[in-house]
Design a binder for these strands. Structure first.
Lengths: 239, 239
DNA sequence: TTTTCACTCCCCAGAAATGGTGAGGTATCG
DNA sequence: CGATACCTCACCATTTCTGGGGAGTGAAAA
């Protein structure tokens, strides 16, 4: 068991960790500390590619990427819609794809129990911190009850570190949309046509187009749908 | 000073808090516990409207809303771009609007020292948990060094509670998309035109349209952009 | 004071998306 | 075994979006 006083120590060490290697060795020793099978921190980017640190085997990570499991992985799909940390048992494993995924995962020595903390950062950054183990439901519940707060805190420390290491992640963040551009993007994301948006905002459709185009330019988007998608995932608009 | 053992107690109490009133009374007693001027949890929606709980005076909250201070408040603007909790001293108070805002805030008995934890949830939800006080820089630094981890954890507990109280924020029962529909929505969200998507997926554009339309139907969307926006904010696709 | 930026308005022509309808094959689930 | 869901292809006419232009105001920043 990891006591509260150990938490201080762990976080101190984590704060001093340097580079990806530092994070990797931190997560390994943390895994040992918790005495569980796996501990993983990773984030998901636009292509579904995963990067991060953790104790999953190389084979499993390769298999995961090669099979594009992020599209069916209930952990990713489920956590993306939640704020709360989630026990894997609460997820929906009923689809065929999910069951297949689970079966393959087991072959690669991924434990049957899991607890994942979703983490969100600026610009739609999304990451997961996952504890994984093989044991009974009761044992796992006890473990989670004991450690969930600590896991949340550690998850956030990992993400802070990861964001420090990846300045690429937020390069063109500075481009904020003007209020009118936000209005336009928001209404478009709500399904309004350009004519309806212009009407709602009480401006001409021509003017509206200027906003859409300047928003598209700022967001580096290829078309309106792309601009709305980017604005959404960067958290610039809320629908 | 709030000890680590008190933290457990505080979080236990918070978890049992019921409704907005429960959160409000929790935050007041937490403020007393920390012995600081103010403690505030609030979230910001697309229109800039604020809701939440805290110990700022009604007058200040009204003034803030009426003056639309969220558009110039360096705390909001600064935290929106970051993941890390931030000491108000690190923010950019140099613009004229910011200085004016600070002057008015002081009139309304907002303290000179602040520490804000940005929190992000699904659908671009954004919230802030702020500790505010009047004291010297040294005293404040000591307070933060002592309590920042606790503040992060409490911030997240408040947000969990707030999300529970706001079912509007939770995505509606998500009817899931078929793999091909996910492919289509994903590529559209990446800015591809229909022709490009069809080409990428090696299907005819006619077939692609069937996917788009059935996705639109499932998502209750009015057009493609709307469908992509909904798929994104429901976490059905990741871009 | 000059420059920058947000906001507003206008035209045109070609490219792209949409709405409605129809049809056939293959899995999977109960 | 039948219902259901998924994947694939096609046509038509109409609406909507897009990519180029150009121009003037006022407020704020340098």
């Amino acid at each position: 068991m990891v006591t509260n006083s150990r938490l201080e120590e762990i976080l101190e060490r984590l704060e001093k960790a340097d580079g990806l290697e530092g994070l990797q060795s931190s997560i390994v020793s943390l895994r040992d500390e918790f005495a569980i099978d796996h501990l993983v921190y990773h984030w998901v980017d636009s292509l579904g590619a995963h990067s991060g640190v953790g104790t999953y085997s190389l084979e499993w990570r390769q298999k995961y990427e090669q099979q594009q499991f992020h599209r069916v992985d209930p952990v990713i799909l489920g956590c993306y819609q939640r704020f709360h940390p989630v026990d894997w048992k609460q997820l929906d494993w009923s689809t065929k794809a999910a069951r297949h995924f689970l079966r393959v995962a087991t072959e690669y020595e991924v434990g049957n129990q899991g607890y994942s903390v979703p983490i969100r950062g600026p610009n739609g950054q999304f990451a997961l911190f996952t504890a994984n183990h093989t044991c009974s439901d009761e044992e796992w519940s006890a473990f989670i009850e004991e450690h969930r707060r600590m896991l949340v805190l550690i998850a956030h420390y990992f993400n802070e570190k990861a964001l420090e290491l990846e300045p690429d992640r937020a390069p063109e963040a500075a481009q904020n949309l003007s209020p009118r551009e936000v209005d336009a993007m928001t209404l478009l994301a709500m399904g309004y046509s350009r004519a309806q948006v212009a009407d709602t905002l009480s401006i001409s459709e021509h003017t509206l187009r200027v906003y859409i185009e300047s928003a598209r330019f700022k967001l580096g988007a290829l078309n309106t749908t792309h601009a709305v998608a980017r604005a959404l995932s960067r958290g610039l608009i809320v629908v």
